[in-house]
Amino acid sequence: CSPQFRNHGYVPPESAVSALTYGVDTRETVSATLGRPTTTGLLGDSTFYYVQSRFRTVAYQAPEEIERQVLAVSFAPNGTLGNIERFDLADGRVVQLSGRTTAEIFADRTFINQLLGNVGRFDAGNLLGDDE
């Protein structure tokens, strides 16, 4: 059975990245040439991160990330281009997500209310008793 592939995110092509010059380009010019970053650093938008990943799904298994490119564009304090680093899937770590969640205030409406609140569909199937 043939696996199915899906791409997410966007990393600019090599041609665009090599057009940047250190110490000159600012956040605006980098954003113009490379496009909007997928996400930015936590403190103020210090570092630009471009992330692109490719997922493969085989039959009943969960989609698996088989390829990831991360381009980190960091800036010097004076706002000009500081450093460009590249990471890939190997740099990441498989993290077991915590199952705990912060309690929610407005919980579900009563079970019965939900169950019967949505009744109203009447279709010919009931009337005619579909014979196999």
Partner: peptide
Amino acid sequence: EQPTGSLSFGVNYSSDNGPALV
């Protein structure tokens, strides 16, 4: 949204099996 649940009591007639309480 549209109702997606159906709750029915009653009789239905199918051409192969005759009347049935449902």
